[in-house]
Computed example of a mutant assay.
Amino acid sequence: MKHEKSIRIIHLLLMFTVLGQLLTEQFMKVPKPGEQFEAFALFLFSIHQLIGFAVMIIAITYLMVVMDNLAHRNRLFPWLDGTLRASLISEAKRDIPGWFKGNLPPPDQAHLIAGTVHGLGLMLATGMGMTGVIIYLGMKHDGSMGAGIHTLREIHELLGTVMWIFVIGHILMAIMHQTKGHRVLQDMFTSSRE
């Protein structure tokens, strides 16, 4: 399935910013009251914060583009429509058992599952961006935070772990599709056929 240029650009921006978030998170250090900070770890924390704002803006923009177009909305969130939800369940029952045997139908035949996975990833990125921005706004300069912000930080970290699982699974599934000759990467990263 070929995608519009705007969707491809937003997808790439979201992909790179989320990867930047995940990578900076591995080496940064969150400030804590009374602790000395390593300059580089604190610098990475600042970069993480800046990229976090970008993730939130891109994810919300992506949601606005998707929700403004019925075809895009139905592709990413088929479970919102009763008929599509029933089709999604049928598609999942038909296709998922085959995955464990190495049988992957072409993306055009499993478009509701693929769309749902992308929609869930978009919601996950939005949730991570929003919780991160709220933490940024609620955390004091010395790293101290109230109980509510601390709880939100725990949720943000959990979402980060889920995002790692999502990204790794997404990459593995794309590689599997490529090895089956489905050309999913070319369809996402090249211009639409006229």
Rank of each mutant, 00 (worst) to 15 (best):
I47E: 06
I89T: 13
S144Y: 05
L124Y: 03
H150W: 08
S90P: 02
P97D: 02
Q26P: 04
D187S: 14
F45V: 07
A110Y: 08
T126D: 09
F166H: 02
L137W: 11
M130R: 08
A174D: 01
I96T: 08
F27T: 11
V167G: 00
A59K: 00
A41N: 13
A125T: 04
A147R: 11
V30G: 04
H150A: 14
V167I: 04
T116G: 00
H72K: 15
I168K: 02
A71E: 15
L158R: 06
M15H: 04
K2N: 15
L44S: 07
V55S: 01
I149V: 15
A114F: 08
G121D: 02
I113V: 11
R193D: 12
M15E: 07
Q26K: 13
G143F: 03
L80S: 13
T17D: 07
M130A: 15
L19C: 08
L22A: 09
T126N: 05
L44G: 03
V184H: 05
E38Y: 09
M176A: 14
G115W: 00
L172R: 03
I155P: 00
E4P: 10
L42S: 14
I51S: 02
P106E: 09
R8G: 05
L137I: 11
I89E: 09
T61W: 15
L44P: 03
M145T: 00
A41G: 10
S6C: 08
K5G: 06
N69D: 15
